[in-house]
Each structure stands twice: as structure tokens, then as C-alpha cells.
């Protein structure tokens, strides 16, 4: 059962990585990076490392994405599109 869940999570994180490669908007790329971090934190929980899972969920999925979006808002109005 856990193997099934972890396989689904691995598929989820690889799909999130591909979204962040091929998306035209920078914002969706950053948000899929946060999704990858969230999936990796779930995998840490299945790998019997709850400490690392909590840290990754608080820092990688929460604060890191927030800081990215704040910095993007700083350089452009709205900050949604790529630099032209």
C-alpha cells in the first residue's frame, strides 16, 4: 500500500518538475516548484524521517515559495510573465 502511495507521489513530483520546465509563465513554474517540495516532504514521511518531512513542509513548500513570489512582485508589476 505504501509502495502504491509513494509511486503516485513520485509520479506527482516528476510531473510537477515537467510543468516547471515547460510552463511559459514564471509564476506557474514557481508554484509547481512548491508542489515538488510538498511531494518530496510526503516521500520523506514514507522514508521514516518525520523530522525532515516537517522541516521540508514548513520551509521548502511554505517560506521558499512565498519569498520567491515576493521577489517576483518586486521586479515587475504583477510579476506574472517572463522577462521580455
Amino acid at each position: 500500500m505504501i509502495t502504491l502511495f509513494s509511486t503516485l507521489l513520485v509520479i506527482l513530483i516528476v510531473a510537477g518538475g515537467f510543468v516547471s520546465i515547460f510552463s511559459k509563465k514564471l509564476l506557474s513554474s514557481v508554484i509547481s516548484m512548491g508542489l515538488v517540495s510538498l511531494g518530496v516532504s510526503g516521500l520523506f514521511f514514507f522514508l521514516q524521517a518525520p523530522d525532515v518531512a516537517i522541516t521540508e513542509a514548513a520551509i521548502g513548500a511554505g517560506l521558499s515559495t512565498a519569498i520567491f513570489i515576493i521577489a517576483m512582485k518586486k521586479i515587475q508589476k504583477g510579476g506574472t510573465s517572463d522577462d521580455e
Binding site: L9, V10, I13, V14
Partner: peptide, 15 residues
Amino acid sequence: IYLTGSMALVGIGLY
């Protein structure tokens, strides 16, 4: 499955 996932992430990031 975990090794494949981690190496896929490294490859995606490098690309």
C-alpha cells in the same frame, strides 16, 4: 522508486 524519483528531479533541475 525513490532513487528514480530523486535522479529525475536532479535531471529536471539540470535541464
